[in-house]
Structure formats: structure tokens, C-alpha cells
Design a protein around this nucleic acid. Structure first.
Lengths: 221, 221
DNA sequence: ACAAAAGTGTTTATATTACACCCATGC
DNA sequence: GCATGGGTGTAATATAAACACTTTTGT
């Protein structure tokens, strides 16, 4: 072995550990997922979730945040762990254990930049994804389930929106996450009991209809 | 380098990956957790969750099942992933990422055997645990939360019991998991709507009171 | 006969669902 | 003045919570 790279030696084989990200956004009332075209083997040229190796001195959450930043240029987005995926054959090269996270990117920050790892990145309708590499379909399924389940009980859906938003905008996000229409009055009742929003008193004007009250997350207070 | 052990070399540092287990049982209407006294550094002599390295060719779930078997002699117990814990400093020696699982051991199989890794093992009341090593308190907290939350919506609590059980026994398990008393009639109503149990027609006799009908999980059918 | 746990319904409160009209604005 | 989405309430149903007595057995 005469490589210039440093070598790290262990008395037992070690798996690689990666983070994989299911990065969601809601665009025009449709739930979308960021997929990248792989620039390297394995699965070169295939669509996959963005992800990468966890560095030896960074936390899992930090690795996920770093990958998110590399892929989208975004910092401060909502991130939550989905779980660990560790089937021994999930990567054909070597043993790779992946910790999956989901991220939420709000519509108004969603400018795509070409990532450093990826030849190409695209927002895809979650209901109509291309074939994904590795076990990424299972990761996406788990991430979607967590997302929808948590949105049902918390104000998580506000993460898809900017700092100020109308109740109808929030309702569209919920409809995208749940995959079904919601009654407007019932939704507003639910909001006032479950979510902790506060009205800004301000109003969104300029559309050809009655202006809508703008709200904020109360946690931003 | 003249060791007898094989050496594994990588061009970048790799973390170790372990599984840690929160093994629960309900004993006399109290939720208990299996803790082991560590026989090795770090934290030698301290209480900790049982766990160990994930082998290079086994799945995470298989590693958890193997550790459970090594620690308790049990196979076929309920196992569910809680999540990955990967703070870079959670183990003082080296980078170790741990995938936490919880396991449920039914009362009638709960004979403790000295594990191979552990000098000593004990069932501890979850409400009164000793100081645990590493980030194991956080793992236990997450595991307890998942356990209670899932028991609320599924028949999971039956995993704490033998193949046949009375409704009162099941109620005691729920009370232990939720940490509060439940009304008997409401519990039975909930059981008949949420859980899928079937009566065996048989009855548990021998106690100084009216015999109780015995039930089974319907999934065992 | 008595102690001890098994078993069983009804009432009330709360949460969820279904459903239709007027309002304020831009054009 | 008309098209567009914003905003609002009530009745029906389903779910959850409170609550007490009779039954069957072992001793």
C-alpha cells in the first residue's frame, strides 16, 4: 500500500456512516422532494436522495445540516431524524449505515443551486417520484409518514411557509401533506385549538379579492 | 505492526456503530428496565444499557436481537428502533454512533441470566433508575416516550404478557406504561375498539375471586 | 358469610365532521 | 358589477371521561 492518503486502521471492520436527506417543500399546493442525479458510482446517473458521509467529529444533526447547506445553500431549516437504515446490502460497495433526516424548505427560500456532490438536482412531486437508488424509496416513505403524522398534531406545517402567511396558505400545505382536501371552517377551528399562531394584524393585499390576515408562528416571538 | 489480529484500513476515519437496548418488562404493575454493570472501561462498574458493536454483515435489527439474546437468553421478543444517537463526545474513547432499540420482555420469560458482556444485570424501576453511563438517560427517555405513545394506539402492551392473559393484567400493563390509573370500564371499551384480541373461552381459576376470561392477541391466530 | 377481583351501561363532556352564505377587494 | 378568494356558525356524530353496583369464586 503506497497511497498518499492517510490510512485509518481498526482491529475490526467498521461500517461507513452517512446521512441521507428527504428535503421537502410545498410548491403550488404540491408536496415536493429534492432528488439529485448521482455523479458517482454506484448508481451513477440515477436519482437519489442527497446525502454524504458523517465526519468523524460532527454530530449526526450537524452532518445533516451541512449536507442540506451543500445541496440547497440553506441554513436554519427544520430538520428531524427519521431513523437509521442499516441493511448490510443497502449499498453494493461496502457496509454503509445511513441515518435519515427530513428537512423542510420554505417556499420563499427555495432557490435551487447545483450541489457540489450532485450533477443535477430537481424538485419532484412526491406522488410521482422517479426510481430512486439504494433503499431511498423506503426512507422517503418513512419520512413522508413522519411528516404527515407530525403535521396532524403540531404547527410543523408552518415551516413550509415564510415568516408571515395566511391561513389559506397554511391550509394548502396541510392538504398537500395529507393528500386530501380540508374544509376551510374546520381547518380554522383546528388551527385555533392546536397551532399556536398569532395574527399580525397586517393583511396581504394586491390580489383581486378580499385581503387575508397574516399570521406568524408564536414560537418566533 | 505485528499484531495477530487482522487490521482493517480506510482512507478516512470511520466511526464505530453499536446498538444499545432499552429492554423493558412489567413486573407487578411496575415498568422496569434492564441495566447492566459495565465490566470494561469506559464507565467500568457503572450501570448502563446493554449493547454492543454491530457486526459488519448483520443488519441493525439483527444486531439488536443478538444483543438481546446475549443479555437475556431471549429470542423472538418485540424489538423496535428508537433512533440514532451520534453526539461526537457520547463515548470518551472514540466516535461511536449508537442505534437505540427498545425491546419488550414478557413477564413469564423474564429469567435473568448473567450476560456475556456484563458483570451483573438488574431490572430497575424506570421511575427510579440509577445513574446511567454515556447518553443512556436520553436513550431511555426517548424509548419510554415511544413505548407509551405506541401503547396508546396499538395492542403493543400485550407484548408484555404471555400468550394468554386477562383484561385486568393488560390494564395493569397500560397503567404502568402511562403512569396513571385507568377506569376499568373505559379500558375495556377501548380494548374492544382498538386492540384486536379474542377471548379463548378459557378462564383463569385458582384465585380467591371470580375467574377471569383469558384473551389472546388476534395476530397470533 | 366474607373478601377479592370480574364483569357490565349510562350519562356527560369534548372533539370531529358536514355543510352554505356574506364580505372585501381588484379589475 | 363581477369574479375571486376571505371569512364566519351551527347541527350531527363520534369519541372520551366520569361514575357504582352485581357476580363469581376461594377460603
Amino acid at each position: 500500500m503506497s497511497e498518499s492518503k492517510p490510512l485509518y486502521t481498526y482491529s475490526r471492520p467498521h461500517p461507513s456512516v452517512t446521512v441521507d436527506l428527504a428535503i421537502f417543500t410545498v410548491d403550488d399546493a404540491v408536496l415536493k422532494l429534492l432528488v439529485v442525479r448521482r455523479g458517482m458510482e454506484p448508481f451513477k446517473g440515477n436519482w437519489a436522495l442527497p446525502g454524504g458521509f458523517v465526519r468523524i467529529d460532527e454530530s449526526l444533526e450537524a452532518a445533516a445540516a451541512r449536507e442540506l447547506a451543500e445541496e440547497t445553500g440553506l441554513t436554519g431549516a427544520y430538520l428531524e431524524q427519521v431513523g437509521a437504515f442499516g441493511d448490510p446490502r443497502r449499498d453494493p460497495r461496502e457496509r454503509v449505515i445511513s441515518i435519515a433526516y427530513f428537512a423542510i424548505v420554505s417556499a420563499h427560500k427555495r432557490e435551487l443551486r447545483a450541489g457540489s456532490d450532485a450533477a443535477e438536482a430537481r424538485w419532484c412531486d412526491v406522488a410521482n417520484l422517479p426510481k430512486l437508488a439504494f433503499d431511498h424509496p423506503a426512507i422517503v416513505e418513512a419520512a413522508c409518514a413522519r411528516l404527515a403524522e407530525k403535521a396532524r398534531r403540531t404547527a410543523l406545517a408552518t415551516e413550509f411557509l415564510g415568516p408571515e402567511f395566511t391561513l389559506t396558505e397554511l391550509q394548502r400545505v396541510h392538504e398537500a401533506l395529507l393528500g386530501q382536501q380540508i374544509d376551510k371552517r374546520n381547518f380554522r377551528k383546528w388551527v385555533s385549538s392546536v397551532e399556536h399562531l398569532r395574527s399580525t394584524g397586517r393583511v396581504r393585499r394586491g390580489d383581486a379579492h378580499r385581503p387575508a390576515l397574516l399570521f406568524r408562528r408564536r414560537t418566533t416571538r
